[in-house]
């Protein structure tokens, strides 16, 4: 028996110039915030952008972006709605406020389904907000979205970086493009993360200081882009993507 969905995925992603998977080995380092600001920044430069939140069991980007009352359109597949100037796809359109506990196989099936039926059309950038960990989501994106480039987010903590380091090494071993590493929630002067990243010949995008006011901006994108977090990140994005 053959699953027909897989053959459609490359077709759906054909007209997308670049795909950036915002990921980390660890949780709680700010992936969804970075992915959201990345999508917003690119869209505000006049680029055609999509954001796909594949953290199916604990999605957060819709809260950051203040998304409510929008739904995808059914047209020979699923067309994601425009949110803040970009196409936005998330499982929250379907799960409402319910928990959706998924084992690995179920996660993969849901991802394949959405990759096969979502019609992104022509995009300059598709940003993927990845779930934490080095498991199903990473393995599926590596398998199904061959042109994905990884932007890795870490905190300054050695506990987070220990996993991030292994994650980068894994991506290197597989010849996957690692766009760079962002050190988020920086609170000290330590250059530990930068040193370790550069030792691996990976681009260190820069540091984003810990921002006490960031939480107050959740749900309001204008406020978010004006925070120290938003402004620093925008600068790093424009510089490192040569925009």
């Amino acid at each position: 028996m053959v699953d027909p969905r897989v053959s459609l995925i490359s077709e759906r992603l054909r007209s997308i110039r670049r795909i950036i998977a915002v990921s980390s080995g660890k949780g709680g380092v700010g992936k969804s915030l970075v992915a959201s600001v990345l999508a917003l920044t690119l869209a505000r430069r006049g680029l055609k952008v999509g954001l796909f939140d594949i953290d199916f069991t604990s999605p957060a980007s819709h809260i950051i972006l203040g998304v409510s009352d929008v739904k995808p359109e059914e047209k020979n597949g699923i067309v994601p709605p425009m949110v803040h100037g970009f196409k936005y796809m998330s499982i929250i359109y379907y799960t409402r406020d319910q928990a959706s506990p998924l084992r690995g196989e179920d996660f993969s099936n849901a991802l394949i389904e959405l990759l096969a039926v979502t019609i992104w059309g022509e995009l300059d950038f598709l940003v993927i907000d990845m779930p934490p960990g080095i498991s199903d989501a990473v393995l599926d994106i590596l398998r199904l979205v061959r042109k994905a480039e990884f932007l890795v987010v870490t905190s300054s903590s050695r506990l987070a970086f220990e996993t991030v380091r292994k994650f980068i090494d894994l991506l290197f071993e597989l010849n996957v493009t690692v766009l760079g590493v962002i050190e988020n929630m920086k609170m000290t002067d330590s250059s530990f993360v930068q040193r370790k990243v550069e030792e691996r010949n990976v681009k260190f995008w820069g540091e984003v200081p810990f921002d006490r006011k960031l939480e107050e901006s959740i749900g309001d994108v204008e406020k978010l882009l004006k925070t120290e977090f938003g402004r620093t990140l925008e600068r790093l994005i424009l510089k490192n993507l040569n925009l």
């Binding site: 699953d3 409402r96 179920d106 849901a110 389904e113």
Partner: peptide, 28 residues
């Protein structure tokens, strides 16, 4: 649209768990 969403809306009729397996009849 996404059959796995069944885990958000369905439970085991006997013990109430959402940890169930789709043994057959998932998709195309």
């Amino acid at each position: 649209f996404v059959p796995e969403i069944a885990h958000a809306f369905m439970k085991c009729p006997r013990c109430g768990s959402r940890d169930f397996e789709v043994v057959s009849g998932r998709g195309v």
